[in-house]
Structures are given as C-alpha cells and as structure tokens.
Design a protein around this nucleic acid. Sequence first.
DNA 1: GCCAACGTTGGC
DNA 2: GCCAACGTTGGC
Length: 154
Amino acid sequence: MAYWLMKSEPDAFGIDDLAKRPKQTEPWNGVRNYQARNFMRDGMKKGDLAFFYHSSCAEPGIAGIVEIAHAAYPDPTARDPESPYYDPRASADNPVWVMVDVRLKKKLKHPVALKLLKSLKPLAGMQLLQRGNRLSVLPVTKKEWDIIIKLAKA
DNA sequence: GCCAACGTTGGC
DNA sequence: GCCAACGTTGGC
C-alpha cells in the first residue's frame, strides 16, 4: 500500500465538493503532466490513501484524506473537444492521459497548513516541500504520512 | 498581482 | 539535439 498527495484548487474543486458527490467519489481528471500521470498509472493501486491538498488559496494545506477507489483508466476529457483538458493526440487506442477515482475518507477538522509542514524538521525531505515543486500528484512516504496523520489528530 | 521555477513547444 | 520563448503552477 502506498501513500500519495493530490492537489486541487478549492475554488475549482475542494474537499467540500468531493463530500457532496454521489458516494463521495470523483474521477480525478485533467492531469496533464507526464510525471503526475505516471504516478497515477504506474504507482497507484486501488486502496491506496492520499492527502487531499488545497493549493492556490488563502490557506494552502492538507484538507482531508481520500482513498483510491479505482486504479488508473483513460481520462475521457482528453478526447472531448469541448473540454478545457482536450488533447488532440489522445485516441481510443492511445488515451495518453489517465485518471483514478478518489473517494473521501475523511475531511480533517483542522487542516494541516503548508506553513506548519514547512516548519517541521522531519518533513524537510517531503517532495511537496522541495524547491519549485509543481506536480499535482506526489508520492508520500509512510514516515511522512504517519507524522502528518498525528498532526491532523492533534 | 508578482515572480521564481519548471515543463513544453518549435525553429534551427 | 539545442535552446529561447512561452505558458503554467502556486506561494506570497
């Protein structure tokens, strides 16, 4: 079982939006970065857990925990000319882009702010905190995961 | 709104 | 294959 972090802008789709979805499940479409795609395609398994991270907002940080409810499968928005995520290279034979389904496990009563994560020495190696990091899907080590879970409960 | 960092594109 | 130009991300 692996751990992940997935970013979303709460103005576009936040943890509360996920909570309102049927079965509190949503296809994580629109990822258009190869590294992020590869994490989803090659790394994510059904049952893996991920932090739901709010980016580009007043209080960036971890807002909740989600479970990977479905492993990677083709992202249909890549083949929809009406979609902002449209990619003319995508076809039935070669979907190019994939998505996973995420299901809400828990919305944190007290989100773990980026500011707090940055202040903790044991988390200094976190990929999220590295300079210039822009990936929307990132791996999290079990050690990091456990530390953050404790913070969320504190 | 600014800007650093990074990925992608496209001319050569 | 190089690299400048451009677009995007995301914290502040």
